[in-house]
Simulated assay, not measured.
Amino acid sequence: MKEITRRKFIATATVATGFALAVQPISAGVITTDAKGLVAGAVKIPVKDGEIPAYRAAPSTGDNFPIILVIQEIFGVHEHIQDITRRFARLGYLAIAPELFVRQGDVSKLSNIDEIRPIVAKVPDAQVLSDLDATLNWAKKSAKGNGEKLGITGFCWGGRIIWLYAAHNPQVKAGVAWYGRLVGDATELQPKYPVDIASKLTVPILGLYGGKDTGISLDTVEQMRERLQSSSSKSEIIVYPNAPHAFFADYRPSYREKEAQDGWKRLLAWFKQNGV
C-alpha cells in the first residue's frame, strides 16, 4: 500500500467505520455498546504537522472527566476500539483513541495482516508519543478532560506503547497493558522496548498476558517482571495460563470471556486505586 504523504493525510484521514477488513468475519457474540447518553464520534486532534483523526466518547453531561487514552491494536481504531471508548464513557470517563498509523497508511482498508505489518513497522515511536501528548492536550483544552486523572490502556501493538508512554509521561496515573510485546531488537524507529525502561518506571502499570500467547513467550514476561522489581512503580503482571493472544478481542475467535471479564474488572480496580 502506498504511504500517505504528510500533506494528504491531513486532508483525507478519518477514523474507520465498522470493523477492519482484516478481522472479518466478526464473531456472533461481539459486544456492542450504544452511544445513548454519550457524546461519541470522530474528532480531529491538532498535532505538530497537521491533525490526526481520533474517536472519543464521554458522558453527554458534566465536565472535568477523568481521561483514558485508548491505544489501538495493529488493525487501527476500528469498531472494537471505538466500542471500548464507549464502555469507558458509560463509567464516567472521557476516552479517546487517536489514529496513530495514519501518516503511514489506512490499515482498516487492508484485508490481509501481511499487508498491515509493513505499514505498522514504519511508525516511529517518537511520532506515537508526540501524538499521544497532543491527544492529551486536546482532551484537557477542548473536551472537558481532567489532566490530573489520566489513565492509559492498549491492546497488542498498543500494549507495548502503554509501557513506553508511561515512561515518557510521568503525569500518567496508571496504565493497563494488554498482551503487548515486551522485548525486541532495537531499530531507529523503535529504539526501546518495555524491558529496557522497566527498572526506571515510576507509573504503576498492570500487564495482562496470556499463557498460551504464541507471539509473547513467558520467558519475556518473567524477564519484565524481574526488571520491574527494581522500579518504584509498583507495577504488576497477571498471566492467564490458558489464554491466547488477543483474549480480550470479543470480535475474534481468540476471545476468552472469563479471562476478558476478569481483566476488565482488574483494569477498573487498578485505575480506581491509582486515582484515575
Score class of each variant (00 low, 15 high):
Gly175Glu: 05
Ile84Asn: 03
Met224Arg: 07
Ala58Gln: 15
Thr153Ser: 11
Asp63Arg: 12
Leu94Thr: 03
Lys122Asp: 04
Ala35Lys: 03
Leu100Asn: 04
Gly159Asn: 09
Leu150Gly: 05
Pro191Cys: 07
Ile205Pro: 00
Ile68Cys: 08
Val221Asp: 03
Thr153His: 04
Glu73Val: 12
Gly151Ala: 14
Ile162Lys: 03
Val39Trp: 04
Tyr179Phe: 13
His245Thr: 03
Phe271Trp: 15
Leu218Met: 15
Asn274Pro: 00
Leu132Lys: 04
Met1Lys: 12
Gln82Asp: 00
Glu99Met: 12
Gln171Gly: 02
Gly145Cys: 05
Gly145Trp: 09
Val70Leu: 00
Gly159Cys: 05
Gly50Ser: 09
Glu79Gly: 07
Gly145Leu: 11
Ala269Leu: 08
Asn242Tyr: 00
Asp131Gly: 09
Arg252Phe: 05
Val123Tyr: 08
Tyr255Glu: 01
Arg86Met: 11
Ile238Val: 14
Leu94Val: 08
Asn64Phe: 07
Gln72Trp: 03
Gly145Arg: 05
Leu267Gly: 06
Ala166Leu: 02
Tyr55Ala: 07
Gly159Leu: 02
Pro204Asp: 06
Ala249Arg: 15
Ile216His: 04
Val47Trp: 01
Ile162Tyr: 01
Val39Asn: 14
Tyr255Gln: 08
Ile52Glu: 01
Thr5Arg: 09
Gln82Glu: 06
Glu79Met: 10
Glu188Phe: 11
Gly37Tyr: 07
Ile26Pro: 07
Phe65Ser: 07
Ala143Leu: 01
Gly158Thr: 09
Thr202Gly: 12
Lys272Trp: 05
Glu99Asp: 13
Ala22Cys: 12
Trp163His: 11
Leu206Thr: 10
Leu150His: 02
Gly92Met: 02
Pro241Leu: 10
Ile81Val: 14
Ser142Gly: 09
Asn274Phe: 07
Gly184Ala: 10
Lys200Gly: 13
